[in-house]
Design a protein around this nucleic acid. Structure first.
Lengths: 123, 123
DNA sequence: TGGTTAATTAACTTATAGGTTAAATATAAA
DNA sequence: TTTATATTTAACCTATAAGTTAATTAACCA
């Protein structure tokens, strides 16, 4: 079994599953509601499997109501993933970008030199 | 070939690749630099493959310098993924959470009853 | 020229993701 | 008690992800 963060990203790496999450962002829905937009393209058991992936990733919570299985979005796992990405924000925000990248490079070079390791990079 | 966002999330769904990104956040590095921490666990060609996944996902850019291949982090793909997640922020930020979920449910019900219109929501 | 270093490619193995159809389960409704 | 509805499970198929080892390419160096 993989670590939770890997499972979360893996769950998000499928357009069907992201569409299911989008649907759930409109509110609770049961399995056949969620399946309906996809039944032209795939079977109901396929959706059951997608939901299982989303559940294991912690992105969706499934409860019981008679023969229905109401599903709802679970924000926590998304937050974990978002927090992980947050540490890279500086790398996509302009202006800072080049300066920071430069500073990081300098630091890296200093470290390499201090350790007495040649680092094979020129310029 | 998959859509870009799926490829990005798939690339992030592996701890080795996330560690490579973390390394690159400290500055440029070539393939063997990046491989070093993993050579106890896997071969160099394995790292080559991981880098290829990261490149295709747009997360890493590889250039040439003699026989070396300096790699650097590319923030844009991360931003795309982060932007996608952003739309769910409300689902992991407390206080809003329950109220908003409730409102969404009400809206969904009304839609079902009124057989109404499309909703294209944003923000 | 030949040797060394850096990295990739090729060919292969194994596990798993994502789909299928058919059968099974669970609850409600008639 | 049977039938209908909602969903899951089982068994299976196929493509691909992730690793391996061995061979190959490319550039530099002596």
């Amino acid at each position: 079994m993989q670590d939770q963060l890997s499972q979360t990203f893996a769950a998000l790496a499928d357009p069907t599953r992201r569409a299911i999450l989008a649907h759930l962002s409109q509110g609770e829905a049961n399995v056949s509601d969620l399946a309906k937009p996809f039944l032209k393209d795939m079977s109901l058991p396929a959706i059951t499997k997608h939901l299982k992936v989303l559940e294991k990733a912690g992105l969706v919570t499934k409860t019981r109501d008679a023969q229905w299985r109401p599903c709802k979005l679970n924000g926590e796992a998304l937050k974990t993933a978002s927090d992980w990405m947050e540490q890279y924000r500086q790398y996509w925000e302009e202006s800072f970008d080049r300066l920071d990248a430069y500073l990081k490079t300098v630091t890296a070079k200093k470290k390499a030199t201090a350790k007495g390791k040649k680092n094979g990079r020129k310029k």
